[in-house]
Design a protein around this nucleic acid. Sequence first.
DNA 1: TTTTTTTGCTAACACGTGTTAGTATATTAT
DNA 2: ATAATATACTAACACGTGTTAGCAAAAAAA
Lengths: 197, 197
Amino acid sequence: MARIKIDKNSSRKEVIVAKAAILFREKGFKAASMRDLAESVGVEAASLYNHIKSKTELLHELCFGVANRFMHKMDEVEAQKIPAIEKVETMIRFHIDEMINHYEEVYVSDREWKHLSDPYLSNFQNQRRMYRKRFAALIEAGIRDKEIKKIDAPTAVLILLHAIGGIESWHRSTKKISAASLTDNMITILVGGLANK
Amino acid sequence: MARIKIDKNSSRKEVIVAKAAILFREKGFKAASMRDLAESVGVEAASLYNHIKSKTELLHELCFGVANRFMHKMDEVEAQKIPAIEKVETMIRFHIDEMINHYEEVYVSDREWKHLSDPYLSNFQNQRRMYRKRFAALIEAGIRDKEIKKIDAPTAVLILLHAIGGIESWHRSTKKISAASLTDNMITILVGGLANK
DNA sequence: TTTTTTTGCTAACACGTGTTAGTATATTAT
DNA sequence: ATAATATACTAACACGTGTTAGCAAAAAAA
Protein backbone atom coordinates (compact mmCIF):
# COMPACT_ATOMS: atom_id res chain seq x y z
CA MET A 1 0.00 0.00 0.00
CA ALA A 2 1.44 3.31 -1.07
CA ARG A 3 2.31 5.66 1.72
CA ILE A 4 3.38 9.30 1.82
CA LYS A 5 7.02 9.39 2.78
CA ILE A 6 8.00 11.86 5.43
CA ASP A 7 11.30 12.90 6.96
CA LYS A 8 11.68 13.78 10.60
CA ASN A 9 10.85 17.51 10.34
CA SER A 10 7.76 17.47 8.19
CA SER A 11 4.30 16.02 8.62
CA ARG A 12 2.41 14.38 5.79
CA LYS A 13 0.31 17.50 5.44
CA GLU A 14 3.44 19.55 4.95
CA VAL A 15 4.60 17.22 2.21
CA ILE A 16 1.30 17.67 0.43
CA VAL A 17 1.44 21.45 0.76
CA ALA A 18 4.96 21.51 -0.64
CA LYS A 19 3.98 19.41 -3.63
CA ALA A 20 0.93 21.59 -4.13
CA ALA A 21 3.16 24.66 -4.33
CA ILE A 22 5.11 23.13 -7.17
CA LEU A 23 2.00 22.08 -9.00
CA PHE A 24 0.13 25.34 -8.52
CA ARG A 25 3.10 27.23 -9.87
CA GLU A 26 3.40 25.02 -12.92
CA LYS A 27 -0.23 24.89 -13.96
CA GLY A 28 -1.99 27.53 -11.90
CA PHE A 29 -4.37 26.83 -9.03
CA LYS A 30 -7.47 26.23 -11.12
CA ALA A 31 -5.76 24.07 -13.73
CA ALA A 32 -4.04 21.87 -11.17
CA SER A 33 -6.31 19.01 -10.16
CA MET A 34 -6.36 17.03 -6.97
CA ARG A 35 -5.67 13.95 -9.06
CA ASP A 36 -2.54 15.62 -10.42
CA LEU A 37 -1.49 16.43 -6.89
CA ALA A 38 -2.22 12.91 -5.70
CA GLU A 39 -0.05 11.47 -8.43
CA SER A 40 2.84 13.76 -7.58
CA VAL A 41 2.51 12.73 -3.94
CA GLY A 42 2.26 9.07 -4.90
CA VAL A 43 -1.19 8.24 -3.63
CA GLU A 44 -4.84 8.25 -4.70
CA ALA A 45 -6.75 11.52 -4.75
CA ALA A 46 -9.20 10.60 -2.03
CA SER A 47 -6.37 9.76 0.34
CA LEU A 48 -5.26 13.37 0.44
CA TYR A 49 -8.40 14.18 2.41
CA ASN A 50 -7.09 12.31 5.42
CA HIS A 51 -4.63 15.18 5.81
CA ILE A 52 -6.28 18.27 4.41
CA LYS A 53 -9.77 19.71 4.45
CA SER A 54 -9.99 21.02 0.92
CA LYS A 55 -8.06 22.15 -2.11
CA THR A 56 -8.52 25.74 -1.05
CA GLU A 57 -6.96 25.02 2.30
CA LEU A 58 -3.74 24.28 0.45
CA LEU A 59 -3.87 27.74 -1.03
CA HIS A 60 -4.51 29.27 2.41
CA GLU A 61 -1.50 27.55 3.86
CA LEU A 62 0.72 28.75 1.06
CA CYS A 63 -0.52 32.33 0.90
CA PHE A 64 -0.60 33.02 4.59
CA GLY A 65 2.63 31.19 5.26
CA VAL A 66 4.40 33.52 2.87
CA ALA A 67 2.53 36.60 4.04
CA ASN A 68 3.48 35.92 7.65
CA ARG A 69 7.14 35.57 6.85
CA PHE A 70 7.16 38.96 5.13
CA MET A 71 5.23 40.58 7.92
CA HIS A 72 7.62 39.34 10.57
CA LYS A 73 10.60 40.53 8.61
CA MET A 74 8.98 43.94 8.29
CA ASP A 75 8.46 44.07 12.06
CA GLU A 76 12.09 43.25 12.57
CA VAL A 77 13.43 45.78 10.09
CA GLU A 78 11.24 48.62 11.27
CA ALA A 79 12.62 48.18 14.76
CA GLN A 80 16.23 48.49 13.66
CA LYS A 81 18.07 51.75 14.14
CA ILE A 82 19.63 52.22 10.73
CA PRO A 83 19.11 54.74 7.90
CA ALA A 84 15.85 54.35 6.01
CA ILE A 85 17.51 53.53 2.74
CA GLU A 86 19.30 50.65 4.43
CA LYS A 87 16.01 49.37 5.71
CA VAL A 88 14.70 49.47 2.19
CA GLU A 89 17.72 47.62 0.91
CA THR A 90 17.37 45.02 3.62
CA MET A 91 13.77 44.40 2.67
CA ILE A 92 14.65 44.19 -1.01
CA ARG A 93 17.34 41.66 -0.22
CA PHE A 94 14.89 39.67 1.82
CA HIS A 95 12.42 39.63 -1.05
CA ILE A 96 15.09 38.49 -3.47
CA ASP A 97 16.25 35.81 -1.10
CA GLU A 98 12.74 34.53 -0.52
CA MET A 99 12.11 34.47 -4.24
CA ILE A 100 15.28 32.51 -4.83
CA ASN A 101 14.97 30.04 -1.98
CA HIS A 102 11.24 29.62 -1.59
CA TYR A 103 10.39 30.18 -5.19
CA GLU A 104 7.30 28.02 -5.50
CA GLU A 105 5.43 29.24 -2.45
CA VAL A 106 6.22 32.89 -3.00
CA TYR A 107 5.26 32.72 -6.63
CA VAL A 108 1.98 30.99 -5.90
CA SER A 109 1.13 33.37 -3.11
CA ASP A 110 1.79 36.25 -5.47
CA ARG A 111 -0.14 35.05 -8.48
CA GLU A 112 -2.87 32.78 -7.24
CA TRP A 113 -4.27 34.53 -4.16
CA LYS A 114 -7.24 35.65 -6.26
CA HIS A 115 -8.63 32.15 -5.93
CA LEU A 116 -8.90 32.37 -2.18
CA SER A 117 -12.45 32.69 -0.97
CA ASP A 118 -13.82 34.90 1.74
CA PRO A 119 -13.13 35.49 4.54
CA TYR A 120 -9.57 34.53 3.69
CA LEU A 121 -9.58 36.57 0.52
CA SER A 122 -10.34 39.92 2.16
CA ASN A 123 -8.02 39.05 4.99
CA PHE A 124 -5.19 38.44 2.59
CA GLN A 125 -5.90 41.59 0.63
CA ASN A 126 -5.83 43.62 3.81
CA GLN A 127 -2.52 42.17 4.88
CA ARG A 128 -1.14 42.94 1.46
CA ARG A 129 -2.34 46.53 1.58
CA MET A 130 -0.87 47.00 5.04
CA TYR A 131 2.43 45.57 4.02
CA ARG A 132 2.72 47.89 1.06
CA LYS A 133 1.83 50.89 3.18
CA ARG A 134 4.58 50.02 5.63
CA PHE A 135 7.02 49.54 2.79
CA ALA A 136 6.03 52.91 1.33
CA ALA A 137 6.53 54.49 4.75
CA LEU A 138 10.13 53.28 4.76
CA ILE A 139 10.67 54.95 1.42
CA GLU A 140 9.00 58.16 2.50
CA ALA A 141 11.26 58.30 5.53
CA GLY A 142 14.19 57.98 3.16
CA ILE A 143 12.89 60.83 1.05
CA ARG A 144 12.54 63.06 4.11
CA ASP A 145 16.14 62.30 5.04
CA LYS A 146 17.27 63.11 1.48
CA GLU A 147 18.62 59.60 1.06
CA ILE A 148 16.06 58.81 -1.60
CA LYS A 149 14.91 60.73 -4.67
CA LYS A 150 11.65 62.65 -4.53
CA ILE A 151 9.39 60.06 -6.02
CA ASP A 152 5.92 58.73 -5.38
CA ALA A 153 6.51 56.12 -2.70
CA PRO A 154 3.60 53.81 -3.54
CA THR A 155 4.74 53.72 -7.14
CA ALA A 156 8.22 52.84 -6.02
CA VAL A 157 6.91 49.97 -3.90
CA LEU A 158 4.89 48.68 -6.80
CA ILE A 159 7.95 48.71 -9.03
CA LEU A 160 10.18 47.06 -6.47
CA LEU A 161 7.86 44.22 -5.61
CA HIS A 162 7.01 43.40 -9.17
CA ALA A 163 10.60 43.72 -10.36
CA ILE A 164 11.63 41.08 -7.87
CA GLY A 165 8.88 38.85 -9.17
CA GLY A 166 10.93 38.75 -12.34
CA ILE A 167 13.22 36.25 -10.70
CA GLU A 168 10.65 33.80 -11.89
CA SER A 169 12.15 34.12 -15.37
CA TRP A 170 15.60 33.50 -13.99
CA HIS A 171 14.39 30.37 -12.27
CA ARG A 172 12.84 29.01 -15.42
CA SER A 173 15.83 29.84 -17.57
CA THR A 174 19.24 28.25 -17.87
CA LYS A 175 20.55 30.29 -14.93
CA LYS A 176 23.65 31.52 -16.69
CA ILE A 177 24.20 33.86 -13.79
CA SER A 178 24.60 32.81 -10.15
CA ALA A 179 22.09 33.62 -7.46
CA ALA A 180 24.62 35.91 -5.80
CA SER A 181 25.32 38.02 -8.84
CA LEU A 182 21.65 38.05 -9.75
CA THR A 183 21.09 39.62 -6.36
CA ASP A 184 23.92 42.11 -6.86
CA ASN A 185 22.57 43.21 -10.21
CA MET A 186 19.08 43.65 -8.90
CA ILE A 187 20.28 45.67 -5.95
CA THR A 188 22.40 47.85 -8.19
CA ILE A 189 19.54 48.69 -10.47
CA LEU A 190 16.79 48.98 -7.91
CA VAL A 191 18.60 50.76 -5.11
CA GLY A 192 20.45 52.79 -7.74
CA GLY A 193 17.10 53.88 -9.11
CA LEU A 194 15.95 55.05 -5.71
CA ALA A 195 19.10 56.58 -4.27
CA ASN A 196 19.53 60.32 -4.41
CA LYS A 197 22.35 60.74 -6.93
CA MET B 1 -33.78 37.86 -29.82
CA ALA B 2 -30.60 39.09 -28.20
CA ARG B 3 -27.93 40.23 -30.55
CA ILE B 4 -24.30 41.21 -30.08
CA LYS B 5 -24.06 44.95 -30.55
CA ILE B 6 -21.27 46.21 -32.74
CA ASP B 7 -20.06 49.64 -33.72
CA LYS B 8 -18.76 50.42 -37.17
CA ASN B 9 -15.11 49.50 -36.58
CA SER B 10 -15.39 46.17 -34.83
CA SER B 11 -16.78 42.82 -35.84
CA ARG B 12 -18.77 40.64 -33.49
CA LYS B 13 -15.73 38.47 -33.02
CA GLU B 14 -13.73 41.47 -31.89
CA VAL B 15 -16.38 42.32 -29.34
CA ILE B 16 -16.15 38.83 -27.94
CA VAL B 17 -12.37 38.93 -27.80
CA ALA B 18 -12.46 42.26 -25.97
CA LYS B 19 -14.91 40.96 -23.40
CA ALA B 20 -12.81 37.84 -23.02
CA ALA B 21 -9.79 39.97 -22.18
CA ILE B 22 -11.66 41.58 -19.31
CA LEU B 23 -12.93 38.28 -18.03
CA PHE B 24 -9.63 36.44 -18.33
CA ARG B 25 -7.92 39.19 -16.41
CA GLU B 26 -10.48 39.14 -13.63
CA LYS B 27 -10.74 35.42 -13.09
CA GLY B 28 -7.86 33.88 -15.01
CA PHE B 29 -8.23 31.87 -18.21
CA LYS B 30 -9.09 28.57 -16.60
CA ALA B 31 -11.54 29.97 -14.10
CA ALA B 32 -13.41 32.03 -16.67
CA SER B 33 -16.13 29.95 -18.29
CA MET B 34 -17.71 30.34 -21.69
CA ARG B 35 -21.02 30.81 -19.91
CA ASP B 36 -19.52 33.72 -17.97
CA LEU B 37 -18.28 35.18 -21.22
CA ALA B 38 -21.62 34.67 -22.91
CA GLU B 39 -23.39 36.54 -20.13
CA SER B 40 -21.00 39.45 -20.33
CA VAL B 41 -21.58 39.58 -24.08
CA GLY B 42 -25.33 39.30 -23.61
CA VAL B 43 -26.01 36.04 -25.38
CA GLU B 44 -26.16 32.29 -24.78
CA ALA B 45 -22.91 30.33 -24.57
CA ALA B 46 -23.51 28.24 -27.67
CA SER B 47 -24.04 31.35 -29.76
CA LEU B 48 -20.46 32.39 -29.29
CA TYR B 49 -19.40 29.52 -31.49
CA ASN B 50 -20.89 31.20 -34.53
CA HIS B 51 -17.99 33.65 -34.28
CA ILE B 52 -15.09 31.79 -32.72
CA LYS B 53 -13.66 28.31 -33.03
CA SER B 54 -12.80 27.64 -29.40
CA LYS B 55 -12.03 29.16 -26.05
CA THR B 56 -8.34 28.76 -26.71
CA GLU B 57 -8.64 30.75 -29.92
CA LEU B 58 -9.59 33.72 -27.79
CA LEU B 59 -6.33 33.36 -25.92
CA HIS B 60 -4.38 33.11 -29.19
CA GLU B 61 -5.91 36.30 -30.47
CA LEU B 62 -5.06 38.15 -27.28
CA CYS B 63 -1.53 36.83 -26.82
CA PHE B 64 -0.37 37.20 -30.40
CA GLY B 65 -2.12 40.51 -30.87
CA VAL B 66 -0.10 41.95 -28.01
CA ALA B 67 3.12 40.19 -29.01
CA ASN B 68 2.91 41.59 -32.52
CA ARG B 69 2.45 45.12 -31.31
CA PHE B 70 5.60 44.87 -29.20
CA MET B 71 7.58 43.27 -31.99
CA HIS B 72 6.68 46.01 -34.43
CA LYS B 73 7.61 48.69 -31.98
CA MET B 74 10.95 47.00 -31.45
CA ASP B 75 11.57 46.96 -35.22
CA GLU B 76 10.82 50.63 -35.36
CA VAL B 77 13.01 51.62 -32.42
CA GLU B 78 15.97 49.53 -33.50
CA ALA B 79 15.98 51.35 -36.82
CA GLN B 80 16.15 54.78 -35.23
CA LYS B 81 19.46 56.62 -35.04
CA ILE B 82 19.48 57.74 -31.43
CA PRO B 83 21.62 56.84 -28.40
CA ALA B 84 21.01 53.37 -27.01
CA ILE B 85 19.76 54.62 -23.68
CA GLU B 86 17.13 56.65 -25.47
CA LYS B 87 16.03 53.56 -27.33
CA VAL B 88 15.66 51.81 -24.00
CA GLU B 89 13.68 54.69 -22.59
CA THR B 90 11.44 54.73 -25.65
CA MET B 91 10.71 51.04 -25.24
CA ILE B 92 10.02 51.46 -21.55
CA ARG B 93 7.61 54.27 -22.30
CA PHE B 94 5.90 52.11 -24.87
CA HIS B 95 5.50 49.31 -22.36
CA ILE B 96 4.06 51.67 -19.79
CA ASP B 97 1.71 53.17 -22.32
CA GLU B 98 0.51 49.78 -23.48
CA MET B 99 -0.02 48.70 -19.91
CA ILE B 100 -2.05 51.80 -19.18
CA ASN B 101 -4.14 51.89 -22.32
CA HIS B 102 -4.49 48.25 -23.24
CA TYR B 103 -4.41 46.93 -19.74
CA GLU B 104 -6.60 43.87 -20.08
CA GLU B 105 -4.99 42.37 -23.17
CA VAL B 106 -1.43 43.04 -22.08
CA TYR B 107 -2.07 41.63 -18.65
CA VAL B 108 -3.70 38.49 -20.00
CA SER B 109 -0.98 37.96 -22.56
CA ASP B 110 1.57 38.28 -19.78
CA ARG B 111 0.00 35.99 -17.21
CA GLU B 112 -2.10 33.48 -19.06
CA TRP B 113 0.02 32.45 -22.04
CA LYS B 114 0.87 29.24 -20.22
CA HIS B 115 -2.56 27.95 -21.14
CA LEU B 116 -1.86 28.14 -24.84
CA SER B 117 -1.41 24.75 -26.43
CA ASP B 118 1.14 23.70 -28.99
CA PRO B 119 2.07 24.71 -31.60
CA TYR B 120 1.00 28.16 -30.42
CA LEU B 121 2.65 27.73 -27.07
CA SER B 122 6.17 27.12 -28.35
CA ASN B 123 5.66 29.78 -30.95
CA PHE B 124 4.76 32.32 -28.31
CA GLN B 125 7.63 31.31 -26.07
CA ASN B 126 10.07 31.75 -28.94
CA GLN B 127 8.77 35.19 -29.75
CA ARG B 128 9.09 36.11 -26.13
CA ARG B 129 12.68 34.89 -25.94
CA MET B 130 13.58 36.77 -29.10
CA TYR B 131 12.03 39.94 -27.86
CA ARG B 132 13.97 39.83 -24.62
CA LYS B 133 17.21 39.16 -26.45
CA ARG B 134 16.66 42.19 -28.61
CA PHE B 135 15.82 44.27 -25.57
CA ALA B 136 18.97 43.06 -23.84
CA ALA B 137 20.97 43.96 -26.93
CA LEU B 138 19.78 47.54 -26.64
CA ILE B 139 21.02 47.63 -23.07
CA GLU B 140 24.34 46.07 -23.94
CA ALA B 141 24.87 48.69 -26.62
CA GLY B 142 24.23 51.31 -23.95
CA ILE B 143 26.79 49.71 -21.69
CA ARG B 144 29.42 49.71 -24.45
CA ASP B 145 28.76 53.42 -25.00
CA LYS B 146 29.11 54.06 -21.26
CA GLU B 147 25.56 55.40 -21.11
CA ILE B 148 24.44 52.55 -18.93
CA LYS B 149 25.97 51.00 -15.82
CA LYS B 150 27.90 47.77 -16.12
CA ILE B 151 25.13 45.37 -15.28
CA ASP B 152 23.91 42.03 -16.51
CA ALA B 153 21.66 42.98 -19.41
CA PRO B 154 19.27 40.01 -19.25
CA THR B 155 18.72 40.71 -15.57
CA ALA B 156 17.98 44.32 -16.34
CA VAL B 157 15.41 43.32 -18.95
CA LEU B 158 13.78 40.99 -16.53
CA ILE B 159 13.50 43.74 -13.94
CA LEU B 160 12.18 46.30 -16.38
CA LEU B 161 9.49 44.16 -17.89
CA HIS B 162 8.21 42.87 -14.58
CA ALA B 163 8.38 46.26 -12.93
CA ILE B 164 6.08 47.64 -15.57
CA GLY B 165 3.70 44.80 -14.93
CA GLY B 166 3.21 46.43 -11.55
CA ILE B 167 0.94 48.96 -13.20
CA GLU B 168 -1.64 46.30 -12.65
CA SER B 169 -1.77 47.33 -9.00
CA TRP B 170 -2.22 50.95 -10.00
CA HIS B 171 -5.10 50.02 -12.24
CA ARG B 172 -6.84 48.10 -9.52
CA SER B 173 -6.31 50.79 -6.91
CA THR B 174 -7.92 54.16 -6.39
CA LYS B 175 -5.52 55.78 -8.87
CA LYS B 176 -4.53 58.61 -6.57
CA ILE B 177 -1.85 59.49 -9.04
CA SER B 178 -2.42 60.37 -12.72
CA ALA B 179 -1.28 58.20 -15.59
CA ALA B 180 1.20 60.87 -16.61
CA SER B 181 2.92 61.16 -13.26
CA LEU B 182 2.83 57.40 -12.81
CA THR B 183 4.82 57.24 -16.03
CA ASP B 184 7.23 59.95 -14.86
CA ASN B 185 7.89 58.18 -11.60
CA MET B 186 8.50 54.87 -13.28
CA ILE B 187 10.88 56.40 -15.78
CA THR B 188 12.76 58.19 -13.02
CA ILE B 189 13.30 55.05 -11.03
CA LEU B 190 13.91 52.64 -13.88
CA VAL B 191 16.03 54.77 -16.16
CA GLY B 192 17.72 56.23 -13.10
CA GLY B 193 18.62 52.73 -12.04
CA LEU B 194 20.21 51.97 -15.38
CA ALA B 195 21.91 55.25 -16.20
CA ASN B 196 25.58 55.60 -15.52
CA LYS B 197 25.61 58.08 -12.60
C1' DT C 1 -41.37 39.21 -51.96
C1' DT C 2 -38.55 35.31 -52.05
C1' DT C 3 -34.23 33.34 -51.21
C1' DT C 4 -29.99 32.96 -48.86
C1' DT C 5 -27.01 33.86 -45.16
C1' DT C 6 -26.03 35.19 -40.68
C1' DT C 7 -26.90 34.85 -36.02
C1' DG C 8 -29.06 33.09 -31.87
C1' DC C 9 -31.63 29.55 -29.22
C1' DT C 10 -32.58 25.02 -26.66
C1' DA C 11 -31.08 20.64 -25.52
C1' DA C 12 -27.76 17.61 -24.84
C1' DC C 13 -23.20 15.19 -24.91
C1' DA C 14 -18.96 13.43 -22.89
C1' DC C 15 -15.72 14.54 -19.67
C1' DG C 16 -13.07 16.27 -15.70
C1' DT C 17 -13.77 18.29 -11.28
C1' DG C 18 -13.66 18.36 -5.81
C1' DT C 19 -15.30 15.67 -2.45
C1' DT C 20 -17.60 11.93 0.52
C1' DA C 21 -18.88 7.16 2.26
C1' DG C 22 -17.56 2.93 3.40
C1' DT C 23 -14.03 -0.36 3.90
C1' DA C 24 -9.47 -2.49 4.15
C1' DT C 25 -4.79 -2.36 5.79
C1' DA C 26 -0.99 -0.74 7.94
C1' DT C 27 1.14 1.46 12.19
C1' DT C 28 1.14 2.57 17.02
C1' DA C 29 -0.29 1.97 21.80
C1' DT C 30 -1.76 -1.10 25.48
C1' DA D 1 -1.16 -10.38 21.03
C1' DT D 2 -4.92 -7.18 21.08
C1' DA D 3 -6.99 -2.96 20.65
C1' DA D 4 -6.98 1.55 18.76
C1' DT D 5 -5.67 4.83 15.55
C1' DA D 6 -3.90 6.59 11.28
C1' DT D 7 -3.73 6.13 6.64
C1' DA D 8 -4.94 4.48 2.03
C1' DC D 9 -8.13 2.30 -1.19
C1' DT D 10 -12.36 1.75 -4.41
C1' DA D 11 -16.52 3.51 -5.91
C1' DA D 12 -19.43 6.93 -6.60
C1' DC D 13 -21.83 11.48 -6.31
C1' DA D 14 -23.28 15.95 -7.98
C1' DC D 15 -21.76 19.54 -10.61
C1' DG D 16 -19.55 22.61 -13.99
C1' DT D 17 -17.02 22.41 -18.19
C1' DG D 18 -16.27 23.21 -23.54
C1' DT D 19 -18.56 22.05 -27.38
C1' DT D 20 -21.93 20.20 -31.00
C1' DA D 21 -26.46 19.28 -33.45
C1' DG D 22 -30.61 20.83 -35.04
C1' DC D 23 -33.81 24.30 -35.43
C1' DA D 24 -35.84 29.20 -35.32
C1' DA D 25 -35.59 33.92 -36.31
C1' DA D 26 -33.61 37.89 -38.01
C1' DA D 27 -30.91 40.40 -41.64
C1' DA D 28 -29.11 40.79 -46.22
C1' DA D 29 -29.23 39.71 -51.02
C1' DA D 30 -31.89 38.51 -55.00
